[in-house]
Computed example of a mutant assay.
Amino acid sequence: MQILPAIDIKDGEAVRLFKGDFARKTVVNSDVLGQARIFADAGIKFIHVVDLDGALDGRATNRDLIAALKVATGLGVEVGGGIRTLEQIADYLAVGIDRVIIGSMAVKDPAFVKTALEQFGADRIVVGIDAKNGYVATEGWLETSTVDYISLAKEMEKMGVSLFVYTDVDRDGTLTGPNFAHYERLVAELTTAKVIASGGIAELSDLTKLQKIGVAGTIVGKAYYSGNINLDQLKAFED
């Protein structure tokens, strides 16, 4: 199982939110590049980066900082937040970003995902499914749709999506443990696509449970920044 430490960027700093609430922001490192170097120096191979400003703005607000992060560290990087156009995706890939996450647009314009898959390939395009009470949240988690997470995942899989990041918004940043039932169902319902778990990781045992469920990867944010899980443990777990 791949372990992906998270860097969420707001106002040029690495932050953590509580349940996606922008008013409940904690700065975990004012130096985003410095935080990325910490991960690289620890032997981490891949990180998950979210442009929180971009999620609100609907554009790649922190693109230059994220591009600099990739160049400075050589880490594998997947990026989400504010991805609304094919031009944004092409630009991120052109500066070396490995995977681009499409979130809100998967609900609002499924044809956009199909075009992105055709143009860039399923190994570069990830669909991010963020849910509140099982229903997909969009626009930086500020809006909730009437689409349930399983229906969207199955629709996207038929379209050719091979990798999802699934986040239970109500668990994100809470250190209360992942929504294991949702991951069990999602893994069982999908036939070929893989799932990266995100949200609620509190301790090392959560990673073990997720691995047993069969997720392909897990994103670790607050559990690392709060000291519950250290980088040596994450690296050893992935190895």
Results as ranks from 00 to 15, higher is better:
residue 1 M to R: 03
residue 1 M to T: 13
residue 2 Q to I: 15
residue 2 Q to K: 15
residue 5 P to L: 11
residue 6 A to V: 02
residue 8 D to W: 07
residue 9 I to R: 13
residue 13 E to G: 06
residue 19 K to T: 04
residue 22 F to S: 06
residue 22 F to L: 11
residue 26 T to G: 07
residue 27 V to I: 10
residue 30 S to Y: 05
residue 33 L to Q: 13
residue 34 G to I: 05
residue 35 Q to C: 13
residue 42 A to F: 07
residue 43 G to K: 03
residue 44 I to S: 01
residue 44 I to V: 14
residue 45 K to Y: 05
residue 47 I to V: 15
residue 48 H to N: 10
residue 48 H to K: 07
residue 50 V to Q: 04
residue 58 G to P: 05
residue 58 G to S: 08
residue 59 R to P: 02
residue 62 N to Q: 10
residue 64 D to P: 09
residue 67 A to Q: 04
residue 67 A to L: 13
residue 70 K to R: 12
residue 70 K to D: 10
residue 71 V to F: 10
residue 73 T to A: 13
residue 75 L to D: 06
residue 78 E to W: 06
residue 85 T to R: 10
residue 86 L to Y: 05
residue 86 L to G: 14
residue 90 A to Q: 15
residue 90 A to N: 14
residue 92 Y to K: 10
residue 93 L to A: 09
residue 94 A to I: 04
residue 94 A to R: 14
residue 95 V to D: 11
residue 98 D to N: 15
residue 102 I to V: 15
residue 103 G to P: 02
residue 105 M to D: 00
residue 105 M to I: 01
residue 105 M to T: 06
residue 108 K to A: 09
residue 110 P to K: 04
residue 111 A to S: 11
residue 112 F to P: 01
residue 114 K to H: 05
residue 115 T to A: 12
residue 116 A to D: 00
residue 117 L to R: 12
residue 117 L to V: 11
residue 120 F to K: 13
residue 120 F to T: 10
residue 123 D to I: 06
residue 126 V to K: 01
residue 127 V to Y: 05
residue 131 A to W: 02
residue 134 G to H: 05
residue 139 E to H: 15
residue 140 G to Q: 02
residue 140 G to I: 01
residue 141 W to P: 00
residue 141 W to K: 03
residue 142 L to A: 13
residue 145 S to M: 14
residue 145 S to L: 07
residue 146 T to D: 15
residue 147 V to R: 01
residue 150 I to F: 07
residue 151 S to D: 14
residue 155 E to I: 02
residue 158 K to R: 12
residue 159 M to Q: 10
residue 159 M to C: 03
residue 162 S to A: 15
residue 163 L to A: 10
residue 165 V to Y: 07
residue 166 Y to I: 14
residue 167 T to C: 07
residue 169 V to T: 02
residue 170 D to I: 05
residue 174 T to C: 07
residue 174 T to D: 08
residue 175 L to W: 08
residue 175 L to D: 03
residue 177 G to A: 13
residue 178 P to N: 14
residue 180 F to T: 04
residue 181 A to Y: 06
residue 181 A to C: 02
residue 183 Y to M: 08
residue 183 Y to C: 06
residue 185 R to A: 09
residue 186 L to A: 09
residue 187 V to R: 00
residue 187 V to C: 13
residue 192 T to C: 06
residue 194 K to V: 00
residue 194 K to Y: 03
residue 198 S to P: 09
residue 200 G to I: 04
residue 200 G to A: 08
residue 202 A to S: 14
residue 202 A to L: 01
residue 203 E to R: 14
residue 205 S to D: 12
residue 208 T to P: 06
residue 213 I to K: 01
residue 213 I to M: 08
residue 215 V to D: 00
residue 216 A to Y: 14
residue 217 G to F: 10
residue 222 K to T: 07
residue 223 A to Q: 08
residue 225 Y to A: 02
residue 225 Y to C: 02
residue 226 S to D: 12
residue 226 S to E: 15
residue 227 G to Y: 07
residue 231 L to P: 00
residue 232 D to L: 13
residue 234 L to F: 12
residue 235 K to R: 15
residue 235 K to C: 14
residue 236 A to L: 13
residue 239 D to N: 15
residue 239 D to P: 08
